[in-house]
Structure formats: structure tokens, C-alpha cells
Write a protein that binds this DNA or RNA. Structure first.
Lengths: 340, 340
DNA sequence: GTGAAAGCGCTAACAG
DNA sequence: CTGTTAGCGCTTTCAC
């Protein structure tokens, strides 16, 4: 490995000068700089980022902690976060906790403040106060997707108005004439998605439509369980004309269930989800959903985290993500009077 | 930040002793060790991994470079690789190059040998000889999924027999009586998947079935393009009774296209892919495919990379991944005589 | 067993 | 502008 000192020797200067060339070229005479640059390329010198991190007291890498990469939402978030981090001159370390709080804890202890200057947390399986303790004696921690804007947590966070997302979904279905609506509530790696379901229910109530709790099912986040749950739901409540799922995975599963039961979408039953993952528009019929703008949230998260690293603030700030937006595609339609 | 020295002071020993306690407890008297441990927990000491990396000359983090996380295959691979790395006491840094060789180069230059002790490369957009150069003066590089076992590259690699995967797919379709088979060949972030298509064609020829090059389409890796390509294919060759796609994404897209054309699967047309990504069994009808055992490949990759770091070998070794296996699900069936 | 000392590769004052 | 001098926090000989 080629070191700074070797470069310095070859350029007949000292390490400090080489270091200066590498960062602010200001205080170095052009011809000296050139000599140094020449030595660098001749030797194929590459700075040791560990040494730099140690000396500078910061590593310029960020960590992103999430529960399980197998939910397609996360890769999408990671993709955007990685881009944002890279653009800001940081590396991104992905820490998958495998739905295991123990692993999350271990990661946090090892990484925060040493390998990573800050960490973005998407897990909800690790208690907030525990995270706070970590944050105390290490590095800034930011909650990347807080689902309850009305109740700011003790940590800085990006809040997403999921209640509104639920309400938008409800509004759309109501407008199409649906009154008997089944509901699939996700309870996967991200925790129970109750902000979404509450928002949905509230909107229904507000419109004077009574909500039928027997048409609600809480299920794990996955296409498979959405499929199974929808099967059960339609069996017990065949008169439903629409299905609202708190996330796209469930909605997609539900759609497949309906199709395999011979129910047309949206002819017989409409389906709507939340998030707008890639799959949502790749599936047929394309899924109507409420988009939360994953990219924007990821970028915002990275930006705030970096800011937090540069100037740690005492009061945990909550910043609101752009509001969710309804994306109408092919899986929802006007309720048809039932004639079978 | 609590340092080793502070712990040492509190335990009334010296840094060296604390360090000894932290690793091999052998040469330290039990009562001293206990005092040190007590100090560590009282102070909430957490080792600075940067400093350790610098002193030890290795960082115990591995890098995984891939072209684009938005292909669902990659998250699956990352998931498995992360687990394997973690179990082996390493961190995993995910480097998404966004299909940009420039970014890949930058990552390699910055990370290899400093932040990461070794790099797992899945990109094919970066020329091998370029990678070799990087490997020369930095850290071990391993190609995680080499598609041409018959032609070992100049770098250590895990080779997957994709030609065999193609042949298995062909065998399955032939057995079901299919003779007119359309082919979708992926050319996405992973490069043209010709080993797979060649294996498929060879198997067909061997069985005396003539391959119709006008029923082949080269397309980008995605559900969308699989969908579009299948539409075109069926329009120009309506007599096809089966579709072989070099990966599941294309196959899934093709399946959706067929269904939206009113063709039953597998009643009218059979569909088969390669890889066996999660989605393959979540889609309806569940996709018949040739599984490559992603998890095993990821684990093998990590294992070999770690070995390479511990004992660098001069001759780039190629190790063969477990052979692909046919997974029969619901998207393929016996060819029915056409009666329309 | 434990301590003292040197050094990993780099940065950051401060002199000159 | 450039060199000198100290570290950053940890590991690792080598004495004691």
C-alpha cells in the first residue's frame, strides 16, 4: 500500500503538503502541487480512509438500518438513499437486522460513531428510548419514516402523513360509489400500520359510511399473506365491492386472489394500496395506490441526517415529508350495481 | 467518546491490558480482567473500529458492488450475503453503481483496501482487466456470479452454470410436448444473458427441434419489457405454445402479457424463467423456473472472499456454484393441440 | 501478567 | 507557501 509519506518523499515535500494538495489546493504553489499530483499518479496512491477517519474524527459513511430487505419497499428506499448519500460525498452502509432487535442493537453499538457518522433507522422493532440511549453517546440517529406526525418521537425524524394516505384512498373509493369495503392492515417488519387504517376509517366515518370491523384483517406484509387474507375476506363477505390495503404488497396479493376467484378487477371489485412501489405499476391490472414518494423521503432523510452530523441540535426535530398523493391506475373503478 | 485509555485509567491498568481483555483473555489475570470489564460497562465503552482497522491493517468490512438494486434479484442476494458476512464477523457495505461504470470505478478506488478488506463484484459493466488492476494494488476482488464456467476469467469467481439452467428449461418444455417456443433474452444491468439462451438452444437442437431465431427477442431486464416483448412476440408468432425467458422478471412480464391477451397459462401457453426470485412463487399462476439457489451462491461468495483475504492466492480460482434446479410450478403444462 | 513504547496513515495546528 | 510536531484510538512487540 502506497502511503502519503511515500508520495511526499517522491515529490520531495512533506506529508502535510501532500495532504494540503489533496484538499484545499489554495495554500500550495502550483508547481509543487503539480509535482505532488505527478507522484500520486505515478505511485497509484489512494488515501486510506480509515486513517483519515481516525484523524478527522469522522468517517463520511452513513448507516441505514432496516428490518428486512426482502420487502421490496426497502431496496427502493436504499437505492434512493445511496444515491443521495453518494452525491453528498458519503458512503452508505446497509444494515439489515433480519427482524431481530438483537442484531439491530449490535449494529448500533458497533457502527454508530465509529464506522458511521450517523444512522438512519427504519426499524420499529427497536424501542425508541433504546435508540435514544445509543444516540446519546455515539452519533446522530434519525428515524426515516415516522408514521405518526401528530405524536413527535423523542428522536429527530422524517414524518410521513400516512393517515392522510389512508384518507385519500377512502376518498377515492367513496367517490367511485363503494360503500362495502374490505380492509387489509399490514403488520409486518414495519409494525402495525394503524395510522393508515385509522385515517381510512376516519374518512369513511366522516362521509357517513359505517365501517364494518368484521371486514378488516390484520396480516403480515407480503403478497402471499395479502392473497390468503383476501381469500378469507371475500369468503366471509362476498358482497364487498372494494378492498383497501395499507400497503401495495397486500393489495397486489389481494388482486391476485380476486382474479383467481374469478372476480374481475375493477369490474367486480376495486383494489387500492398505499406506497406505490415499483411493482404497483408493473402488475396487471396496474394498481391504483397512494404514493408516498419514497425517493423524496430518502433524500430528505439523508439531507437531514447530514445536517444533524454537522450541527447536532438538542431538540429532536420532526420534519414532514411531502404529502402522499393518489395515483389512479387500472385496479379501481366505479362500483357497479351487483347483478349476478 | 470513551476511549481505551480512559477505561484503562479507571481499571488502574494500561491500555495494552484492556486491549488484551478485549481479545484473548488468556494472558490476563481473572481479577484484573473483571476490573477491566467493570470499567468498560460503567463507562459504556465501545471500541473505535476505525482506529482498530488502522492499527490492525484490516477493517472487517466487505463491499458488495452491484449495478442496480432495483432488480429484485439483487436485494435477495444482498440479504443472503449480509447474513453470511455478519455471521463471519464482517460488515457489508452495499455499493450500488446505478449502472454507471464511472461510479463503480470510484467506489473501487475509494473503498478497496481501506474501508473494505475485499470486494464482491456483480457488475459486468466494468471490464475485467480494469478490475484486475484494482485488485492488484488494493484488496481481493471476487466475481460473484460468473456466467461462463467454460471460460474462467482472470479474477477469482463463483461460476454458475447458466447454460445448464437454460438446458433444464428446454428439457422441461420439450417433455411437455412443446416445439414452438418463443424466447426472451435479458440484456439488463447484468449484461446479455447468452449463456442461458445458448444452453437452451443447444438442448433444443440436441433434441432435434429446430430453433426459430425469429421467435427470439433481446430485451432489458424488467417485468415491463418482458410484457411488451411478449406482446410483440405473440403478435408475430401466434402459434407459439411456450415462452422461455432467461430470467424470472421477463417471464413474469410475459405471463401478464399472455393473460391480458386472453391466453390461458398454462392452458394455451406455458411460461418458464430462470433464477427463482421471490416473486416467482408469489405471482399467479406461480412461475415454473430454474432455480439457481441465490442464497448458496451468496454464502459461497462471502466464504471465498474471506478466505481470499486471509490467504491471498496468486492463481485466480474459479469455484462452481451448486447446479441449477428445475422448479415446476403452475405456469407450465402439457402442450394442448391447438383448437380454436 | 502487566506496562512502556512505537506505530498504523492521516490531519491540523503552528512555526518559519 | 512549506516543514515540524502532535496527536486520532487502538494493537503489538518487547521488557520488566
Amino acid at each position: 500500500m502506497v502511503t502519503l509519506t511515500e508520495v511526499a518523499k517522491r515529490a520531495r515535500v512533506t506529508a502535510a503538503t501532500v495532504s494540503n494538495v489533496l484538499r484545499n489546493r489554495e495554500k500550495v504553489r502550483p508547481e509543487t502541487a503539480e509535482r505532488v499530483l505527478k507522484a500520486i499518479s505515478e505511485l497509484g496512491y489512494r488515501p486510506n480512509l480509515n486513517a483519515r477517519a481516525l484523524a478527522e474524527g469522522r468517517s463520511s459513511t452513513l448507516a441505514l438500518m432496516l428490518s428486512n430487505l426482502s420487502n421490496p419497499f426497502y431496496p427502493e428506499f436504499v437505492l434512493a438513499a445511496e444515491r443521495a448519500a453518494r452525491k453528498a460525498g458519503h458512503f452508505l452502509m446497509v444494515c439489515n437486522t433480519d427482524d431481530d432487535a438483537e442484531i439491530g442493537r449490535a449494529y448500533l453499538n458497533q457502527i454508530a460513531g465509529t464506522l458511521a457518522d450517523g444512522v438512519l433507522v427504519m426499524n420499529t422493532d427497536i424501542a425508541i428510548n433504546e435508540l435514544c440511549i445509543s444516540a446519546m453517546h455515539s452519533a446522530p440517529i434519525l428515524l426515516a419514516m415516522w408514521e405518526h406526525p401528530e405524536a413527535p418521537p423523542a428522536l429527530p425524524c422524517i414524518a410521513v402523513d400516512f393517515a392522510r394516505a389512508g384518507a385519500l384512498a377512502a376518498g377515492h373509493l367513496l367517490e367511485l360509489g363503494h360503500r362495502e369495503i374490505g380492509m387489509l392492515v399490514g403488520d409486518g417488519c414495519g409494525g402495525l400500520q394503524d395510522a393508515r387504517s385509522n385515517g381510512f376509517r376516519a374518512a369513511l366515518r366522516e362521509a357517513g359510511v359505517e365501517t364494518d370491523t368484521s371486514a378488516e384483517l390484520v396480516v403480515r406484509d407480503s403478497i402471499d399473506s395479502g392473497y390468503a387474507a383476501c381469500m378469507r375476506l371475500m369468503a366471509s363477505k362476498p358482497s364487498l365491492t372494494a378492498i383497501f390495503a395499507t400497503n401495495d404488497l397486500l393489495a397486489i396479493g389481494a388482486g391476485q386472489a380476486l382474479m383467481s376467484m374469478g372476480r374481475a378487477i375493477p369490474g367486480d371489485v376495486s383494489v387500492i394500496g398505499i406506497t406505490d412501489i415499483q411493482l404497483a405499476h408493473q402488475v396487471h391490472p396496474a394498481l391504483t395506490t397512494v404514493a408516498i414518494n419514497t425517493t423524496a423521503i430518502a433524500e430528505l432523510s439523508i439531507e437531514r441526517l447530514i445536517r444533524l452530523i454537522q450541527q447536532p441540535s438538542q431538540a429532536p426535530e420532526m420534519v414532514l415529508a411531502p404529502p402522499p398523493e393518489l395515483v389512479v391506475r387500472a385496479s379501481t373503478g366505479v362500483r357497479r350495481s351487483r347483478a349476478r
